[in-house]
Design a binder for these strands. Structure first.
Ligand SMILES: [Mn+2]
Ligand SMILES: [Mn+2]
Ligand SMILES: [Mn+2]
Ligand SMILES: [Mn+2]
Lengths: 151, 151
DNA sequence: GCATAAACTTAGCCATGGCTAATTTTTGGA
DNA sequence: TCCAAAAATTAGCCATGGCTAAGTTTATGC
């Protein structure tokens, strides 16, 4: 019942792979928050903590603590009891995160995954896709839409 | 410079998406550890903490603490100063994790991603791929290998 | 305009997963 | 055999990201 013998790869190389995943996870909350805050500002005119917490499915104090960290790290500004604003740095990260998220989502649709599943999977996948892979995704999205147009 | 107006989705739905990502992250360390431990047992005859830590790129105490948790949760057994063994539950998780990891890796190769990037990306992506998406990946891997054979 | 409700903050708890320094146990070579 | 090196453990630190309970501020509706 054993799989084919994969020889172990070099230990250092493998360590670098795991290190990269840890780095991605470090940025994950930041990316999801700024993307969500930007969405709320666009559609509601402002981003309130209560709405951020509700959409993330966590408590207000939990969301508030992370917002404080984002402020500390220069992604957002916010005065006590007021709504949340993105800094330039935060807006830039929101834009690039949304773009990447959209590409992953559309790619999943293009290869035949359902809307619901694509929405679920892309929320986690987006943070682990390299630029190289993203480029391949974009190419296949384009091919798919061209195929659709021709039909 | 604004993107097309995406209306906000339902808050509850969105919360469920994020909740699913949090669940996936809860399992992530467990899956990576049991997969690695299984690889070490297959190729080295045993899994030593020193090797687990080296390959994850973390300190021995950090790896040891997580191994304790895996033991507490029934994935591994290990006596003090001895090597690490997988329980049936751990072996099953290792097998299914490796299988999923391999599918993601081979899928990336099939769509034209380089070996190095596929190795990097698949280590993070694997934990966020649903069964539905995995099925699509498998289909496309098969199509690709058939195309290769025909050529 | 005032009372109540909603929003937010504060305080304090917990688990996970990193770390270093110091100690203990095991192992292997002279 | 025994001693030094390697492996593992213990202790104690930290950041992140969850939580609840309780208090404060702001907004709302009568
Ligand atoms: Mn996103
Ligand atoms: Mn996300
Ligand atoms: Mn894996
Ligand atoms: Mn992994």
């Amino acid at each position: 019942m054993s799989s084919p013998d994969r020889p172990l790869e070099n230990a250092d190389q493998q360590a670098q792979v795991f290190e990269r995943v840890r780095k991605a996870h470090q940025m994950e909350a930041t990316e999801d928050y700024v993307e969500l805050i930007d969405d709320l500002i666009r559609t509601q005119g402002e981003a309130r903590l209560v709405e951020v917490a509700e959409r993330l499915g966590i408590s207000q104090p939990s969301a508030g603590k992370t917002i404080s960290r984002l402020q500390r790290d220069g992604y957002v500004t916010s005065e006590p009891y007021r709504s949340i604003f993105l800094t330039d740095k935060g807006k830039q990260l929101a834009d690039s995160s949304r773009e990447r998220h959209d590409i992953v989502f559309k790619f999943l649709l293009a290869i035949g995954v359902s809307e619901d599943t694509a929405k679920l999977d892309s929320e986690g996948l987006e943070h682990h896709v390299s630029d190289e892979t993203l480029g391949v995704f974009k190419r296949l999205i384009k091919q798919h839409s061209e195929r659709q147009a021709k039909k």
